[in-house]
Design a protein around this nucleic acid. Sequence first.
DNA 1: GTTTTAACTTACCCATGGGTAAGATATCAA
DNA 2: TTGATATCTTACCCATGGGTAAGTTAAAAC
Lengths: 221, 221
Amino acid sequence: MPRNATASAPHLKAFADRRRDPATKRGAVLKTAAQLFLEKSYARTSMNDVAERLKITKPALYHYFRNKEEILLECYRLGTALIEETLNDIASRCGAGLEKVEAFIYSYANVMTVNFGRCVMRLDDGDLSPEALAEVRNYKRKIDRRLRSFIQEGIADGSITPCDAKIAAFSIAGAVNWICQWYEPEGALSAEEIASQFARTLTQGLARPNGSGLVHKESKS
Amino acid sequence: MPRNATASAPHLKAFADRRRDPATKRGAVLKTAAQLFLEKSYARTSMNDVAERLKITKPALYHYFRNKEEILLECYRLGTALIEETLNDIASRCGAGLEKVEAFIYSYANVMTVNFGRCVMRLDDGDLSPEALAEVRNYKRKIDRRLRSFIQEGIADGSITPCDAKIAAFSIAGAVNWICQWYEPEGALSAEEIASQFARTLTQGLARPNGSGLVHKESKS
DNA sequence: GTTTTAACTTACCCATGGGTAAGATATCAA
DNA sequence: TTGATATCTTACCCATGGGTAAGTTAAAAC
């Protein structure tokens, strides 16, 4: 995996010449800011830091965003859009509740390895204004409800052991959300490995099917 | 459980009269600060906020702590002490790896519902100085290693399905750590309910033992 | 009672950082 | 070429909040 946003920097060149399209530059600001927010947190990232990395000065940023918070909010919006996309896919897919949950874990885990996705669960939404906070909380609630409904479906169709769906959803969401706290794009673990093992262990559990015998061990691929 | 630190405030009276023991007052500052850090985050909690809640003035706080960071660090220390305590219990206990993991989840989940425990995983350790950060990271690494070793034990003794112990540990730790993000002491879910269901579903999985775990299950529904 | 000392207050300092005013300069349309 | 406009810079404002200096009050020691 050679080119990973950090090292070779495509978007850092966006401000090389003066007149180019604003859309690209706005995007570059956003990408850079998201990166910094993940590196140092939103609060510890100053507008100057963002400007510096783009090799411009602070006030230039205000041509593309009204204020710092708007940048943060936009990160949330892009991230939640990624999540909603995959959620719609899964919901429309046929299958038992358990399969949906499994697909959810897999897809969601992958999103948690993408910067904008990571922002959604790692950044502190308490830094948002009340209105923006309400919007973001709404997105998050929607995700939680979606997962919870998959679990309830599974209990209803018999693919999932009866349990408190609310707690189960928190458990799964927690495991996956936490990825954005420790995942490193350049790290040893690939997104694919993480996503697939998470999907398996969270649905099937750690426990060996029964006792210690290899009695009816299924083909483990 | 009627008296829950928030409503009836025992430690908020610590500064009622002037000369009392410093230890109690220091503890009151700590408790109040931890509470505020969880309510508003460390960064958004000013020393004035802490003082105000204790009905004293900001400089008075500096009789008990050298600076704001020392308060934060102390929260981490008390929290990690709670965790280590339970970890030692479990490690010394006999049992298969899976049982240890289960016990870990149960105990750790309970710690995550206690304010100082919540601080450990919810507060942003990036606010600490490099030295303090190293100390805290060290605590956290120890916890992770402990969990990972339980899992490896389980794989070795046959109680746990072979898997990548590192990823499995992240998954479990994530689910449990996330509790401190959503748990509300006054909320509908009790610590006991959460801890026991977490211990069960994370070890046994969601899937119903027989019938649906497999991909080739024909799932009508 | 008087002194000593810890506990606390009032009043302040100043670094950080979000945001703006106003001017400079390159780009684009004509 | 030239004016108009978006782009970007230099220089600044000021609110917030951690931290301190120095004095005040009350408790405790004698």
